[in-house]
Design a protein around this nucleic acid. Structure first.
Lengths: 221, 221
DNA sequence: TCTTTTTTGTTGTAAAAACAACAGACTTGC
DNA sequence: GCAAGTCTGTTGTTTTTACAACAAAAAAGA
C-alpha cells in the first residue's frame, strides 16, 4: 500500500492529509488493490458496485454498448481520478456501463460504508476525508451541469456561444484562453470539427469575437 | 420551523429520520428560512453560495444569461428538491446562474459546514444525514451522466436509440414505458418534436421498435 | 535548417434537422 | 354527448450539419 501514498497525496480525495495519516486511513477504510491487464474488463454492465475506486496506474475506458450492439466510449479515466461515485447509494441499481482497461491498470478500492460511517476516535482525518469526498462529487456535479448547458443548445453556433460566454464569465475577462484545440473543443461540444471551425470564422466575421489559436476575445454586440 | 417537518420528512435528505429528530436537527444545522416574491431573484450570477438549500414551497427557475444577453432557462426546482449542492466546495467559485422565483417561494437554508462536521454526541442522526446527502448528490450525478450520454449523440436518431436502449436496460425489459410525452421527450433530448416524431416512425417502419403512446418495445435487429 | 506531422481553415455535396403549418386522434371538462 | 383543448403524426421548405477532401499554417523533430 505504501507505494500508492504519493499518488493519493495528489488526489482531491486525500488533499490536506499527511503521508502517515494516509497510510493509517488506507487500513481504516479497508482499501484493496487490484490489477487489470490491457483489454480486460474491470466491471461489466449489470454488475453491482458499492465501492469507491481510484485509478492508481494505467488508463480505463467507460464504455456503453446499446441494445443493438453499438459501442460508445463515454469517458477516459486517468491516474488519480476517482470513479464509481455514482453508484454508492444502496438503491442506485446496477452499473449501466462497461469499464475496460485501455492499458494495464491498477485500481484502489475503498469501502463506501466505512468512509461515510465515522469511527468515533481512531481516525482523526475522517471528517476531512468526508468533506473532500463531498467537494469532489460536488465539483464533478458542477462540471456536468455546465457541460449539459452547452450540449442542450441546438446548433453548433449556440453551443460555441454558450461555451465561450461561460468561459469569459469564469475567467472574469472578455479575453481568455481555452484548454482545447479545435478537435478537442469539437469533441467536447459533440459537433463536427470542420463545421465548428467554419462557424467560428463566421462569428469572427460578424464581429462577435476574435481568436488566435486557443486565445479568444468576445466583443459586445 | 415545525411547519416544514412534514415536507422534509418526504425529502431524500431527511429520509429515515423521525419527526422529532428532524426538528432537533434543524436546530443543530442552524437552518434558516427565507421567502421570495414571485419574480424576485433568490440568487444572482456572481454571488457566493455556501449553504445547501431545499425549496419548501413555490417554484424556482435556474436561468442563465449569456455574454450577449440571451436568456436560457436551465432547470425548474420544485418543492422538496435540494439545490446549491454544486457550490458547497470552498473553492467552487461564484454562482454561474441566476435563481429566480417563478412563484412566491419559501426556501430553507442549511449550513454546509455543520452538516459535514459531525457533532460528537449531540445529534444521533447526523451520520444518517451525511449518508443521505451523499446518496442524493450521487444520484443526481448519475442522472446527469446518463443524460449527457444521450445528448452527446450527434443525430436525433442516435439520441432516441441511446435513450430507449438505456430505458430498456434500466427496466430490464424490451417493453417499457417512459415518463414523457413526445414534447417532453423532445425537450429532454434537446431536439425538435416533429423531427423526432418522424424519426420514431421511421425506426418503427424499419422494424427496430414499436410504440403506442408512451409504451415502447424494442426488437432485436 | 529542412522535413515531417499536426492543426486549422476552406470548399462543395449530401444528409439531417429545424421550422411552420395542418389534420386526425385522443382527452378533458362541462 | 359535445366542445375545446391537447397530443401526435405528416408534409414541404429552409437552414444547418456532417462528411470528405484538400491546402495553408504552425509545430515538432531530426
Amino acid at each position: 500500500m505504501k507505494k500508492y501514498v504519493s499518488l493519493l497525496k495528489g488526489t482531491k480525495l486525500f488533499s490536506g492529509v499527511g503521508d502517515d495519516d494516509i497510510l493509517s486511513m488506507l487500513n481504516c477504510l479497508n482499501a484493496a488493490v487490484r490489477e487489470y491487464d490491457k483489454g480486460e474488463y474491470a466491471f461489466r454492465q449489470g454488475e453491482y458496485i458499492r465501492d469507491l475506486m481510484i485509478l492508481a496506474e494505467g488508463r480505463l475506458h467507460i464504455q456503453k454498448e446499446d441494445y443493438w450492439g453499438n459501442l460508445n466510449i463515454l469517458n477516459e479515466i486517468r491516474p488519480g481520478e476517482m470513479f464509481g461515485e455514482a453508484y454508492i447509494a444502496p438503491n442506485s441499481g446496477t452499473l449501466m456501463n462497461d469499464v475496460i482497461a485501455a492499458e494495464t491498470s491498477t485500481v484502489l478500492f475503498f469501502d463506501t460504508e466505512r468512509i461515510l460511517t465515522v469511527c468515533p476516535s481512531a481516525c482523526p482525518f475522517h471528517t476531512l476525508l468526508i468533506k473532500n469526498m463531498f467537494y469532489t462529487i460536488s465539483d464533478k456535479n458542477k462540471s456536468l451541469v455546465r457541460k449539459l448547458s452547452y450540449m442542450s443548445q441546438r446548433s453548433t453556433r449556440e453551443k460555441l456561444l454558450s461555451y465561450l460566454s461561460d468561459e469569459a464569465k469564469r475567467q472574469n475577462s472578455s479575453s481568455f484562453s481555452i484548454p482545447f484545440n479545435r478537435q478537442q473543443l469539437a469533441d467536447f461540444l459533440s459537433v463536427d470539427r470542420s463545421a465548428m471551425s467554419g462557424e467560428l470564422c463566421k462569428l469572427r466575421d460578424e464581429g462577435l469575437l476574435d481568436f488566435h489559436k486557443s486565445e479568444f476575445t468576445l466583443y459586445e454586440v
